[in-house]
């Protein structure tokens, strides 16, 4: 299918050019603010999708993002680490905590994992709101989280205070994250994740320890949730326990489902589509926006389970001559 890959490559390059040259197209602060949020949400949606790849929905994904956010903030403000060390370290901490949850819950499929993660998300929210207030700040959370900066000697100093500089930072990390997840997806490990989501019993019967791979899948997913959390904390500057409560995982579920579950670019497309829609076109809907999101989730799952990413295939399959050699 050389022709189709060609079109995909052109689209990706086009998108990259637009994204890189964005500051010359507009100087609107609001645009960059939203673009930054879209980037963070793409990483988060992709992390959610990484766990969907092993066939599980993690309702505590926001809580893990929260763990990343709090860990990164505390590493910077309390331990005095620079952001550049705090980000990967916070992501690692998130992944390690997810290992414990994985060991407890992944013995069972579906329902138990879901309910357990639901409980875990509530537990994290309650703990952050009510315990260790001197460290976690209780319900008001943590404020004045510093923006990162780079200092090389005394000459070069880049501070990521402005939206545009932070925009480039987020763009870079988002692209990196997607590249890594896409590499995993195409690897043998990714193939095994996919196999487990289709038939765990068969995966076991051919000698693959599905438990080990499921735990790895959850850890990979939560690592990137931690990355998203750290970026969010340093971008927004304020974090509170409710930012990471169970309900905040709903919109990202919509992003993944709308874009296309189980694909690398599905979450990217879904997040961009829905966030651009809601922040630039549906702003006056206000409260009804959430209702629209809910209806979109139900409608897509019911009528178009493969999401927006299946639209080209849908069109190509109607016009087989357009898709080049086909199979």
């Amino acid at each position: 299918m050389p022709k189709k890959i060609g079109i995909e490559a052109i689209l990706i390059i086009l998108a990259l050019v637009v994204l890189v040259t964005m500051p010359w197209l507009t100087q609107e602060t609001y645009v960059f603010h939203i673009l930054c949020l879209i980037g963070i949400n793409i990483i988060f949606a992709a992390s959610l999708n990484a766990i969907l790849n092993i066939g599980e929905l993690n309702l505590a994904q926001s809580a893990f993002m929260g763990i990343g956010a709090y860990a990164s903030t505390l590493l910077v403000t309390r331990v005095g680490l620079s952001f550049w060390f705090a980000l990967p370290l916070a992501a690692l901490i998130t992944a390690v905590i997810s290992l414990l949850i994985g060991l407890l819950t992944l013995r069972f499929r579906g329902a138990y994992f879901l309910l357990f993660t639901f409980l875990f998300a509530e537990l994290i929210r309650i703990l952050l709101s009510n315990f260790g207030i001197s460290v976690f700040g209780g319900i008001p959370g943590l404020t004045n989280i510093p923006r990162p900066s780079i200092e090389l000697g005394s000459l070069i100093k880049i501070s990521f205070d402005s939206k545009i500089e932070f925009y480039y930072l987020i763009l870079l990390i988002t692209l990196g994250s997607i590249a890594i997840l896409s590499r995993i997806d195409r690897s043998r490990t990714g193939m095994i994740f996919w196999a487990i989501s289709q038939s765990e019993s068969l995966t076991e019967s051919i000698g693959i320890d599905s438990m080990k791979f499921k735990i790895l899948g959850v850890a990979i997913g939560c690592f990137f949730a931690g990355v998203a959390g750290s970026l969010y904390a340093h971008f927004v500057g304020i974090i509170t326990p409710t930012d990471f409560a169970v309900h905040s995982v709903l919109a990202p579920i919509a992003y993944v489902v709308v874009g296309g579950m189980g694909t690398v670019f599905g979450p990217v497309i879904g997040t961009t589509f829905l966030m651009v829609l809601s922040h630039f076109f549906l702003r006056e809907l206000g409260f009804y926006e959430l209702l629209v999101y809910g209806l979109i989730i139900v409608g897509i799952i019911r009528f178009m389970p493969e999401g927006l990413i299946s639209i080209p295939n849908f069109i190509f399959s109607r016009f087989p001559e357009a898709s080049g050699s086909g199979k």
Binding site: L291, G294, I301
Partner: peptide, 14 residues
């Protein structure tokens, strides 16, 4: 399991 769950989560929201 997965699709019904996501549909149910969406419906609850609606």
């Amino acid at each position: 399991e997965l699709t019904s769950l996501i549909a149910a989560v969406g419906l609850a929201w609606v």
